[in-house]
Design a protein around this nucleic acid. Structure first.
Lengths: 220, 220
DNA sequence: AACCAATTCAAACGATAGTTTGAAATGTAT
DNA sequence: ATACATTTCAAACTATCGTTTGAATTGGTT
């Protein structure tokens, strides 16, 4: 059947993309891993670029609405949430991705990271275009939680948070190995997320520096 | 002269690598930008892989000793520093890179980000092998600042901090454009670093979560 | 069973990658 | 000025990439 081939390609592609990046994963590697013919990628998806989009879309279409639901629930229950609660709205949607696909959580976040750093802004535009409303709601929730932050400051801190998250998951394989070897920690995706939440919450909610420690910085 | 060719290659390569990544920057692009012959890369550096190493080494050899000096100075003056002071030890060494090379700070951090995410752990091993002592001193300083954190927790939080930093600088071009368009902010590397410090300091110094908000996390 | 559309397949295409080669040019020391 | 080592250069080599092609195969419909 045709649906099988498409899905096998998507399944193989997402893993390889998340581990080696889009540019360093060839269609030949994907199709041989998926046990399908090389030409079937162009037949079913048109091009490699469109394949990448569909790989991301498969996750975004599940993740984004789920975040939207969590935000609705939170704001209905707590009209004045704290930072931790707002970011907790990402936890369930993220973990639910592992039910859709084995290791889906890590794969998705790694794909996000690849997309952000390898596609020179294409992914960002794609997301803001298709899911702008959810993003605005999230930003608004952060504003409710930390009203002292200016919109510009929220913008920066959210991207700091994305960076923390995305980079950690991108390196999670290596980090997990080190944690196991050096600290005898058996690390799961959930465990990493649990460790990330306090860091991100504290970071986003931090006091803004009025005068910098370093006088050099004031030129900026 | 031969030294000129080597330096011109390094100068062109570091910019292109930092902007487009190692894999997506061809030797032909580098040599045409550097106005030297294609074959001179292999003549002077042996291979593309070794060129990448030398590009990174040129910055690490300046940055790492500088951090070491800053740490010595800080711990001599303040045997019990706070988190902000420890991370401030990175600021001067980073900014000094812009004196070595125009925009050197941003280039270096972007290279770091590329190296971490594109070389599947090679860069991490390279750094810990060649500059392990500096890293240990930095971890020790963090421990002095936040003694409540276990070694394992410090390990994780430092990598969270690296992620924040490296991802932000990797995306700094796009972020700066948005900040200019949406918030009329003229952004400099120093400005970004200044905004990063409170976030990272608060994140690293955050209280450890004893019981997670989400019961699902406890399985981890 | 015959027909047609959808899919698969092996093969080749054009473009680009890193690297190698051997001659030409340049610099240096006697 | 001669001889030698270093460096540059144009060109070619090998490998791999995404994509296209046209025939073979499959699946469903009448």
């Amino acid at each position: 059947m045709s649906a099988d081939t498409k899905i096998q390609i998507l399944d193989a592609a997402e893993t390889l993309f998340s581990e080696h990046g889009f540019g360093d994963t060839s269609l030949r590697t994907i199709t041989s891993e998926a046990k399908v013919n090389l030409a079937s990628v162009n037949y079913h998806f048109g091009s490699k670029k469109q394949l990448i989009q569909e790989v991301l879309q498969r996750y975004l279409s599940v993740f984004m609405p789920a975040v939207d639901d969590e935000l609705s629930r939170l704001l209905h229950k707590h009209p004045s949430p704290d930072v931790g609660q707002v970011f907790s709205c990402l936890v369930e949607p993220l973990l639910s991705l592992s039910q859709v696909r084995p290791d889906g959580t890590a794969i998705f976040v790694r794909l996000l990271g690849r997309g952000y750093s390898e596609s020179q802004g294409h992914l960002r535009k794609y997301i803001t275009f298709h899911y702008g409303e959810v993003l605005r709601r999230f930003v608004h929730a952060v504003h409710l939680a930390v009203p002292k932050l200016s919109p510009a400051e929220i913008f920066w801190r959210l991207h700091f948070a994305i960076g923390t998250f995305v980079f950690t998951m991108a390196s999670s394989k290596a980090l997990s190995e080190i944690a196991l070897a050096d600290y005898h920690q058996d690390v799961t995706v959930q465990g990493i997320i649990a460790r990330l939440m306090p860091y991100i919450s504290a970071g986003v909610g931090a006091q803004v520096a009025e005068t910098s420690v370093n006088p050099l910085l004031d030129i900026a």
